[in-house]
Design a protein around this nucleic acid. Sequence first.
DNA 1: TGGGAAACTGGCCGGGTGGCCAGTCATCCG
DNA 2: CGGATGACTGGCCACCCGGCCAGTTTCCCA
Lengths: 123, 123
Amino acid sequence: MSEDTTPDIVLSLEIEDPALADRLATLLGGVAGLRLAAPGETASATIVARDPRVMPEDIDLTQRELDVLALMAEGASNKMIARRLNISVHTVKFHVGSLLDKLDATGRTDAVAHAARRGVIEL
Amino acid sequence: MSEDTTPDIVLSLEIEDPALADRLATLLGGVAGLRLAAPGETASATIVARDPRVMPEDIDLTQRELDVLALMAEGASNKMIARRLNISVHTVKFHVGSLLDKLDATGRTDAVAHAARRGVIEL
DNA sequence: TGGGAAACTGGCCGGGTGGCCAGTCATCCG
DNA sequence: CGGATGACTGGCCACCCGGCCAGTTTCCCA
């Protein structure tokens, strides 16, 4: 009689903390309709530790800086960014400078890495 | 008499698919020891759709290239990388060149972004 | 009315970056 | 014994980057 209309939801655990992982595994193991993924199995959803969502507080970047940052993350050069945003290369440098400042980065690569880490941008 | 030795595990849902999210919410709602996060509440774990883990899309980088890549992601310049790895700046450039090639990137910033996206490195 | 913030532009310049050429050395393999 | 591959190093050079100086305009707010 098992109506196979909806197979079990397969969940995988991606938790560092062994204690938390263990509690979750135990708790979820007893839930009908749910199943923990077997090693190597592709899960339909994953439980990760902590909220990956952006941390509290915002680095307070202006809209223009966000525009420039996004293009930087795409690997665009200052010249390309200038063309894309219809502004001069000098202005791009100006914004990049502010970005390096606010993100406490030493260069554009570092800036993108920091921004990604802080959830300011999505790679 | 509720022994509060272990508070409920707070879970937040990060699911695109409304149907799947709904099923999970229903299933999880009836589990003792578990609780779904209230809007804005910081969860101890999050359920995300799909497995965020990287595909077996190996980029086949040499060990040295991985070394260089890791330092690049830290925002290190070629000179810094050279010092850190005890090799010449020219050799660093050599590896960076290979990296740009293999990662199909236009520059070091792009290379780091691509590598992070493909899970080759962790930011 | 004046001050501040944001966005924008210019020139200049030292140092970094990436591409090209070339070469050495060790290892693995036919 | 060649031949191939990967790691490494060098010189050269056009271009890019980031920091410095300077200036403009617009908008918002006290």
